[in-house]
Design a protein around this nucleic acid. Structure first.
Length: 660
RNA sequence: GCCGUUGUAGCUCAGGGGUAGAGCAACGCAUUCGUAAUGCGUGGGUCGGAGGUUCAAAUCCUCUCAACGGCACCA
């Protein structure tokens, strides 16, 4: 072989530090690691070739920048979890022959695998499966990658009775390389990559729960059993995660709502909230804040009907596109006779509780003639909406059937879209900052299958929102198909205590409703024009937002939102009169204040109000009464500074002011 | 809506064919006690609902409702 020919078969491998080495083409990642250091080869779990993570066992055939990953490197967690999903599937098929495997990805904090089995798995099966997984990991079989022929792969899985896998392969694009990964006697269709052996997974994993999940996320298809697990590098990481979950559960707004006496839900009104005085005081404080912000931002506030005729909803498009979510009420006089049908006659006319405020706002807009000079009109309403949500969707305050939106619709001209959208994004950012949220995810939800309007109108609307996002400098991701039936939307997501993400703020561009409901304004040219409509909310639903607030603050709301801002507690009954005076003064200043003159020890009172998460306690005994002072105890502080009565009162009044 | 789990006192939970339990809370009495639980006493439940099996059901069976965890759907 000539030197030149030999050189042709050499590849240059560049390491992260910039140094380059030459290897024969076809050298495996493991061999490269081994040539760098024996210890590296031992610790290696994967190799990155020009940005793509691959199995160590794969041959490298091109010049490449590489990186060898070890278990402590960032990509390892995902691989541990993915490998763990494979082991879970093998364990299940060993223990429960006849179970079909489907898909099993790694996810945040862990992994899952969906199985098809006539009898769904139950919680009792998990310990058994977990033991089997440990056994499989103990065997330490190597993950072996094989490239298969497409047709043969389909035939193989079909013969084996793995109909779901066969379907998956059939649906893969023809260009895709079909690979399977073997671990001992078991194999799975998989794109990879995997770590060298099952032993590399370690034992810091735990099966968490079983759940139903539809095949390919489609509710018209088979219901599979999903097993969720969590997996980590080490026992310590696993324990830390489990502890973190326990801590998060303590912040659950449903638990805190009961403990703090904020609200309750009951069977007879499922999905609708009974707000208790303390919970409603949060609502009022929040609503007042939003109202002030909106006023300053040039909004006007309206109030529109709860019940409207079905003809109205036909015109808006809700009757055909949204009816399954609407509460429909027959417009008939009910029968009051004992034991008779509820209605004397078959109802012919129907009313519906509003699921949205927009069509009603268009009606307000349409009263009188609007000039282009009137635009934009920013019409706000704390609108109470009803949506008949599926039973399984209901979730505390986060997902309810009756909720109040901090809703508004901006009627504007096309040339105002950009500035209005930008102003909205900025207002939202200001308010979220005031309310303590900085970690907000933005999504652009584009046209869904079930929609009204022309393709052109959707193109226009989607582009307009994209431009607004760019102008506001907001990072976002696309959510294809997630738009409302009338237009695309921006969604502002905030996470709750258990990591679930909820849409709060939203901005939706709607070129369709003004058309359907025939809203017009007179343009500069004297002719009629269609206004465009921006649907927008910042909190989204007040219910949901309060739920999020409770969880994010773990119930310890900032002073301006706290249900009880201050409790004046006495140490002995000799201070009762003095305490009463202070209480009266705070009450007159508009504070939410309580007086605790019960015949209890001060320890008892402090404990109780601490558990109730009252931010400030004014504690007065004989000494304070005589000296005209108060001892101040703040939440989560053991300190008890004593201050002059007047300055203490002035300070708490100042501190309890809303941010706007 | 679908799959799984759960439902016993206001709350947290024990009990699993033979007279319904605990702690906290509530109520009563005593205690005036300086920064996270004062002591003693009292009351409180058709065991989610409806049927069934049994001499006997909170307990076993069937149906149903709701909540919880996911999925689907969504502010």
């Amino acid at each position: 072989m000539s030197n030149a020919a030999a050189a042709l078969n050499q590849i240059t491998i560049t390491l992260p530090d910039g140094s380059a080495r030459t290897y024969p083409s076809g050298t495996t990642g493991l061999a490269i690691a081994d040539s760098i250091a024996k210890s590296l080869a031992k610790a290696a779990i994967a190799i990155e070739i020009n940005g793509e993570i691959r199995d160590l066992s794969r041959a490298v055939e091109e010049h490449a920048n590489i990186r060898i990953f070890k278990r402590e490197d960032a990509p390892a967690l995902e691989m541990i979890r993915h490998d763990c999903a494979h082991v879970l599937a093998e364990a299940v098929q060993e223990l429960f022959p006849g179970t079909q495997v489907t898909i099993g990805p790694s996810i945040e904090n862990g992994f899952y695998y969906d199985f098809a089995r006539n009898e769904p798995f139950t919680l009792e099966d998990l310990p058994k499966i977990e033991a089997k997984m440990k056994e499989i990991i103990g065997r330490g079989a190597a993950f072996e990658r094989e490239v298969w022929d497409r047709e043969q792969a389909i035939e193989y899985f079909t013969k084996k009775g793995e109909m779901y896998k066969a379907e998956l392969i059939r649906d893969l694009p023809g260009t895709e390389t079909i690979t399977v990964y073997r671990q001992g006697d078991w194999l799975d269709l998989c794109r990879g990559p995997h770590m060298p052996t099952t032993k590399h997974i370690g034992t810091a994993f735990k099966l968490m729960k079983v759940a139903g999940a539809y095949w390919r996320g489609d509710s018209s298809r088979a219901m599979l059993t999903r097993i969720y697990g969590t997996a980590w590098r080490s026992e310590e990481e696993l324990q830390a995660y489990l502890t973190q979950i326990e801590e998060a559960e303590k912040r659950d707004h449903r638990k805190l709502g009961r403990e703090m006496d904020l609200f309750h839900l009951q069977d007879e009104a499922q999905g609708s909230v009974f707000w208790h005085p303390k919970g409603y005081s949060i609502w009022l404080a929040l609503e007042g804040y939003v109202r002030r912000r909106l006023n300053t931002a040039g909004y006007v506030e309206v109030k529109t009907p709860q019940l409207m005729d079905s003809r109205f909803w036909e015109a808006s498009g809700h009757w055909s596109k949204y009816r399954e979510n609407m509460f429909v009420v027959p417009d008939v006089v009910p029968n009051t006779e004992e034991g008779q049908k509820i209605f004397k006659e078959e109802p012919k006319h129907f009313m519906a509780l509003k699921p949205m405020n927009c069509p009603a706002h268009v009606q307000v807009f349409k009263q009188g003639i609007k000039s282009y000079r009137d635009l934009p009109i920013r019409m706000a309403e704390f609108g109470c909406c009803h949506r008949n949500e599926a039973h399984g969707a209901l979730h505390g305050l986060m997902r309810v059937r009756q909720f109040t939106q901090d809703d508004a619709h901006i009627f504007c001209r096309e040339d105002q879209i950009a500035s209005e959208s930008l102003a909205f994004c900025e207002l939202l950012r200001t308010m979220y900052t005031d309310l303590g949220f900085t970690n907000v995810k933005v999504k652009l939800a584009t046209r869904p299958e079930n929609r009204v309007g022309t393709e052109e109108s959707w193109d226009f609307a989607e582009n307009a929102l994209r431009q607004a996002l760019d102008a506001a400098g907001l990072d976002y991701e696309d959510a294809p198909g997630d738009g409302a039936f009338y237009g695309p939307k921006l969604e502002f997501h905030i996470q709750d205590a258990i990591g679930r993400s909820w849409t709060c703020g939203t901005l939706q561009l709607d070129p369709n409703l003004p058309e359907r409901l025939d809203a017009t304004y007179i343009g500069e040219d004297g002719a009629r024009h269609r206004p465009l409509m921006l649907h927008r909310a910042i909190l989204g639903s007040i219910e949901r937002f309060i739920g999020i607030l409770i969880e994010n603050y773990a119930g310890k709301l900032p002073l301006w939102l706290a249900p009880t801002q201050c409790v004046v507690s006495t140490i002995t009954s000799e201070a009762d009169g003095y305490a009463q005076e202070i209480y009266n003064e705070l009450l007159a200043a508009g504070l939410r204040v309580e007086l605790d003159v019960r015949n209890e020890k001060i320890n008892y009172k402090i404990r109780e109000h601490s558990l109730a998460k009252v931010p400030v306690m004014f504690i007065v005994g004989k000494r304070e009464a005589e000296e005209g002072k108060v001892a101040i105890r703040r939440m989560d502080s053991q300190e008890q500074p004593v201050e002059a009565r007047d300055s203490a009162i002035a300070a708490i009044i100042a501190q309890s002011q809303p941010p706007y």
